[in-house]
């Protein structure tokens, strides 16, 4: 890995390729349980990739990413509820709807910085959570059933099909975030993260770049949400719950925020830890919580520093 976590196909990049190749072969084991877990990991990794654009490269600590994830799922569910199961339409609605939502909420949230940004993103996501439980047409607390989407002959209700579609979209997400970060837009975003005042004096308006990053991240999270709705055959308020936002942040930082492949490793390790711990005890959070605190303590540069090793700088938490 090189400066700013770019994949130079060394270290992390190679490990990611090996991991993805392993995932591609995994269904050969013919274990339904394993394919389900795998699909869940791909979806969460995709959502974490989108959060990485904000936290890792934009320096924007959003604690409301469940909003866009859940909105994507609900877009699919609402269309399904009214009888539209065509994949292109449902996924376009999920991506477009989440992007629009991110535009609106981002425009308001980005007016403040630091702890206020964290609180406001959390509050807006909670608003959607309450809204989903209060609206009867959305099924209230129970949520909505989803008939899985079809893309021509590809039916996402088929376990293996959904597995490979999710894996494919995860790979696409990795490539997109890699190109985006290295693009003209991406380096302005990173520049604003590193030195906002300097970027202003060069002629950049930080608000525009941050808002656009917010919209792109929202769209990607919406895509992940659409997949989740197909996996669960359901969209429920749980997908909008603040704890999802927290989990996504934990995965991001465990894997290494501000690194392209970090979200993949974060999602995989978080799910593995969760599966292993919950094999021993139903109260796995009793151990994971303090572990998280310890990890933050042990690494002076934050959790990202612990895992990312040689990167010349780490993401700042928006102080």
């Amino acid at each position: 890995m090189k400066v700013r976590g770019r994949v130079a196909l060394s270290g992390g990049g190679v490990a990611a390729l090996v991991l993805l190749a392993g995932f591609a072969l995994l269904p050969l084991a013919q274990q339904p349980f394993v394919t389900r877990i795998g699909t869940g990991i791909f979806i969460l990794a995709l959502a974490t990739i989108s959060l990485n654009l904000l936290v890792g490269y934009g320096g924007l600590v959003s604690f409301g990413h469940a909003a866009y994830f859940g909105a994507g799922a609900y877009a699919v569910a609402i269309l399904s509820h009214y009888g539209t199961h065509r994949g292109w339409i449902a996924f376009a609605a999920a991506v477009g709807g989440s992007a629009l939502l991110a535009l609106i909420l981002g425009a308001a949230s980005l007016r403040v910085r630091g702890v206020f940004f964290i609180m406001i993103t959390l509050a807006f996501a909670q608003m959607l959570y309450h809204l989903s439980t209060a609206v009867e047409k959305l099924g209230g607390d129970d949520g909505l059933r989803v008939v899985p989407n079809s893309f021509g002959p590809l039916f996402l209700g088929e376990r293996i099909t959904l597995y490979y579609v999710s894996l494919g979209l995860l790979c696409a997400g990795l490539v997109i975030s890699d190109r985006l970060v290295a693009s003209h837009f991406g380096r302005v975003l990173v520049g604003i993260r590193d030195n906002e005042r300097r970027m202003r004096s060069l002629g950049y308006n930080p608000y525009h770049y941050r808002l656009l990053a917010f919209v792109i991240a929202g769209a990607l999270a919406g895509l992940a949400g659409a997949l989740e709705a197909n996996l669960d055959a359901y969209a429920s308020p749980e997908l909008l719950h603040w704890s999802i936002s927290g989990d996504l942040l934990v995965m991001l930082v465990l894997g290494g925020s501000g690194s392209i492949v970090g979200p993949l490793f974060g999602a995989v390790s978080f799910q593995l830890v969760q599966q292993v711990l919950s094999g021993f005890t139903s109260h796995w959070m009793l151990y994971f919580g303090p572990a998280l605190v310890l990890i933050v303590f042990v690494s002076r540069r934050g959790v990202a520093g612990l895992f990312a090793g040689t990167r010349p700088h780490h993401v700042r938490g928006g102080r």
């Binding site: 400066v3 700013r4 190109r179 985006l180 693009s183 003209h184 837009f185 991406g186 380096r187 302005v188 990173v190 520049g191 590193d194 030195n195 300097r198 970027m199 060069l202 002629g203 950049y204 770049y209 656009l212 010349p312 700088h313």
Partner: peptide, 24 residues
């Protein structure tokens, strides 16, 4: 911008006069 090279620092400054909404 400490995490960019000297050349990139100047290129980003040059870019401010052109189009930065290029994503690929």
């Amino acid at each position: 911008l400490p995490s960019f090279t000297a050349l990139e620092n100047v290129a980003i400054a040059a870019q401010a006069r052109g189009r930065s909404f290029r994503f690929w």
